[in-house]
């Protein structure tokens, strides 16, 4: 799709907040971009929401936006999204929960505490059969995109919890 003229303007103000100016020329400060399908289809459907949770602009895809606005949104999304993707499970403290896992993620090495096996959820989607979402005791969600693609050691550990 070709970038077209946007019906709204988006800028970042001096406080680092996004400001959206809508078709009527009204400015909204503190815009929050949100992915509608954060896990199953991150690129489909992004909503620009006002600070008080009202949707101001719905974007099916970012591709149609002018490059400058798009990069602003992508940058903001990157700051807000924190779903580390587990690449490798190094070790676990015990196979009974609560258990502390040492993991390598795409954001570096960390430890997570698994409160119970219930916090490991299988994502049932059309195109993510092997995907798992792991919520740690702090409420951080860790993602395993495809558990069958992990190395043998990680899979072996993971199997004991599934």
């Amino acid at each position: 799709m070709k970038p077209t003229a946007s019906p709204f303007a988006l800028t970042r103000n001096g406080f680092g907040r996004l400001v959206l100016t809508d078709a009527e020329g009204l400015a909204h400060e503190g815009i929050v971009p949100v992915r509608a399908f954060g896990i199953t289809a991150p690129d489909y459907g992004i909503s620009l929401m006002s600070a008080d949770g009202k949707e101001l602009q719905w974007l099916e895809t970012l591709d149609v936006l002018p490059a400058d606005i798009r990069s602003l949104i992508v940058a903001e999304l990157a700051q807000r999204e924190f779903v580390p993707e587990i690449r490798r499970i190094v070790s676990v403290s015990s196979y009974a929960t609560p258990s502390t896992w040492q993991v390598d993620t795409d954001r570096g090495t960390t430890a997570l505490i698994l409160k119970s096996e219930d916090d490991i959820r299988r994502l049932r989607g059309r195109d993510n059969a092997g995907a798992l979402m792991i919520a740690d005791s702090q409420g951080i969600h860790f993602l395993i995109r495809d558990r069958l693609a992990l190395d043998a050691h990680s899979q072996k550990i993971l199997k004991r919890f599934l």
């Binding site: 949100v34 509608a36 399908f37 909503s47 009202k54 994502l123 969600h141």
Partner: peptide, 15 residues
């Protein structure tokens, strides 16, 4: 329901 769904941590993918 759209707006409150978007306020969930993973939007429509929230459990």
């Amino acid at each position: 329901a759209h707006e409150f769904i978007l306020r969930q941590p993973h939007g429509y993918d929230s459990l």
